[in-house]
Design a protein around this nucleic acid. Structure first.
Lengths: 247, 247
DNA sequence: AAGTGGTCTAGACCACATT
DNA sequence: ATGTGGTCTAGACCACTTT
């Protein structure tokens, strides 16, 4: 077997796993734009100097992970890793209407660089007392408040967001993380509990104090497992709905 | 290739898919007890008259689905399809303590054969007005009420449960479905919402009327996609906690 | 030493999509 | 007609486990 055309990590791993890792790296580096076809199996296998079936195993793994999509007779295509982890999936109003995804309006209420609270430091895996970027956000739906969020971001990764005009944040944060700071959220972990609104939260959500609210605690990770965002979100409990399937 | 040793379904499917289906059928039929090793790759491949690699694809699929577990150097073992869909996964008190799973005590409060309510008929995919078996159940944890459940089962599948002594139901229903009625729950779909306790529910849960409660609506399916159970469960909202991961 | 699953190769043929 | 991915085969060698 001729020497591989590219350096591959950890030679103890099976060849197909190393191929998968290297292809994932090249995909993450943007070597092939989304929705375009990768080189064919035979071409890539020849470039790496491996058997076609070995490269196929790597492709199959990437397809299972959702990074690429295989289409018989056409090619293997890059998939944009559409995260199905929107905070809105927990609330009825945020669902499709007539097929299109509806995104509520967002407003940044406050922004500050400040010491991380204990829960955020813990979520980010940082020492308490280190500084982070705090965003307070209100999301509305058809004019009425839907979600209040307190978001803490790792610094200095997100330093550019500390300077950007709060009006120019747009409705969605994760695309902004990617375009402004080069950080792509690949996985989120959410923990849902039910509580009651105190006076301040009730005022923001336009409900009576003491009404039940759903709290979602979140930590968001990049593909290499680094926690970049810790978040707490509160929404009206009567708007909450979540569907779970277990096997 | 010699004729397969066993009849395989739908010849249009790829061979490895037909092998997977046939092996899944034999597993479901209990041909090999759980925790025992299946015949080796080479033996099974020879019995089916296919190449080892083709049989491997079927095994890999079954392993991904959790029906079998492959152990290098030892064999391929039957896994009991441990459903990770307990209603208790939504409530904190139901978690492990010192490593062991703790199951709350259960009591059947009422049982009746009666016309299905609309929501249960819809969940079971049956015409409203057909009769089902209703179970009302209370689950307690450390002496205090945790969950109230209204369960509707398809008839005549579960007719034997209409005669069994309510004291002899035990703490878990799904194993009973299997042992008494031959129905194995393979998948559940849950929908979680938040409401408030009316007087009757509050009394059963030992909380004040108007306190927030979490309602879980469930439909349970067998491996072949037949809905056999529709359920509504109510628990104290302050005991609710659910962790979700999205990618 | 023998048996198991895991990896890798090489090649034939098929199904699908585009030119 | 050509190129793509999908299936299937046959066999070599490796790593792990048990005897």
């Amino acid at each position: 077997m001729p020497a591989p055309a590219r350096s591959l990590p950890d030679p103890r791993l099976p060849l197909h796993a190393r191929l998968r890792d290297d292809l994932a790296r090249r995909l993450a580096a943007g070597e092939w734009p989304p929705e375009t076809a990768l080189p064919s199996e035979t071409a890539l296998a020849a470039a790496y100097g491996v058997a076609v079936n070995t490269l196929r195993r790597a492709f199959e793994q990437l397809a299972r992970e959702g990074l690429v999509e295989r289409r018989q007779g056409r090619g293997t295509f890059v998939r944009r890793p559409a995260l199905r982890g929107s905070m809105l999936r927990f609330f009825r109003q945020a669902e499709r209407e007539g097929g299109a995804e509806i995104v509520p309006e967002s407003r940044i209420l406050a922004r500050a660089v400040a010491p991380l609270p204990a829960w955020a430091a813990h979520g980010l895996g940082l020492a308490p007392g280190l500084r982070g970027l705090r965003l307070d956000r209100l999301r509305r739906w058809a004019g009425s408040p839907l979600l209040v969020e307190e978001i803490w971001l790792r610094l200095p990764d997100f330093a550019r967001l500390a300077k950007r005009s709060p009006e120019a944040f747009g409705a969605l944060l994760y695309p902004l993380y990617e375009s402004e700071c080069g950080r792509v959220v690949a996985r989120v972990e959410d923990e849902i509990t039910v509580g009651r609104a105190d006076a301040a939260l009730a005022r923001q959500l336009d409900i009576a104090a003491g009404e039940p609210v759903v709290e979602v605690g979140r930590v968001a990770f990049t593909a290499d497992g680094v926690a970049i965002e810790a978040r707490r979100a509160w929404g009206r409990a009567d708007r909450f709905r979540y569907r779970a399937t277990a096997t």
